[in-house]
C-alpha cells in the first residue's frame, strides 16, 4: 500500500465518469476498479511522489491564475491589434531567481507561466535556481519578477514544500 496515490485514483475515477457522462452504478464500479488498477500499475513508472502540505492554498492560486489569464489575454490582444499607440514592443528574455525547488511545484509553475499569454517558460537552471522566461512586452522587469514571485511562487511553495 506504500505506492498508493489517492489523489490520482480519485482523479482517474472522476475522469472516467465525466467521459461517460453518467453516474449509474455499473459505471461507478467500473470506474473505481479501473482507477485503482491504473494507479497501482503506474506507481512503478513514476517513483517520485508529491506531498501536498497545504492543498487549501490551491483555491486562491486558481483564482489568481484565472484573473491573470484574462488580463494578459486583453493585453496581448491589444498588442496584436496595434492598440498600444506608437511605442515599440520589446520582447526579450528575463531571468528570475526562484526559491521553489520541488519538481512538482516547478511543473505547475511552468504550466501556469506558459498558459498565460505573453510569457513562455524557456529554461530552469536547477543548480543556480534561475528561471528563464520569454516575455512578449517587457517594459517593467521588476514588476514581472514581483508578479511571478508573489502571485505564483509563494502559494506553490506553501503547497509543495513544508
Amino acid at each position: 500500500m506504500k505506492h498508493f496515490a489517492p489523489v490520482l485514483a480519485i482523479a482517474l475515477a472522476l475522469m472516467w465518469l465525466l467521459m461517460n457522462d453518467t453516474v449509474s452504478t455499473g459505471q461507478v464500479v467500473l470506474g473505481i476498479l479501473l482507477a485503482l488498477l491504473l494507479t497501482f500499475w503506474s506507481a512503478k513508472l513514476r517513483p517520485l511522489r508529491p506531498r501536498l502540505y497545504r492543498p487549501q492554498l490551491a483555491i486562491g492560486l486558481l483564482w489568481t491564475v484565472f484573473v491573470d489569464i484574462v488580463r494578459s489575454n486583453i493585453a496581448v490582444g491589444r498588442i496584436i491589434l496595434g492598440l498600444v499607440g506608437e511605442r515599440s514592443i520589446r520582447s526579450a528574455f528575463l531571468d528570475i531567481p526562484l526559491e521553489l525547488r520541488d519538481p512538482h511545484g516547478l511543473a505547475v509553475l511552468a504550466t501556469i507561466i506558459t498558459s498565460t499569454p505573453g510569457t513562455v517558460w524557456v529554461d530552469f537552471d536547477a543548480e543556480r535556481g534561475l528561471l528563464t522566461l520569454h516575455v512578449l512586452d517587457l517594459r517593467d522587469e521588476e514588476g514581472w519578477i514581483r508578479t511571478i514571485k508573489e502571485h505564483y511562487e509563494r502559494p506553490l511553495i506553501g503547497i509543495f514544500q513544508p
Binding site: 496581448v76 520582447s91 506558459t114 498558459s115 513562455v120 520569454h134
Partner: peptide, 14 residues
C-alpha cells in the same frame, strides 16, 4: 518567431 509564440496561446486558453 519568439514573439509569434505568444499569439496562439490566447486561443488556447481563454
Amino acid at each position: 518567431f519568439q514573439a509569434r509564440m505568444h499569439g496562439p496561446s490566447m486561443g488556447n486558453t481563454l
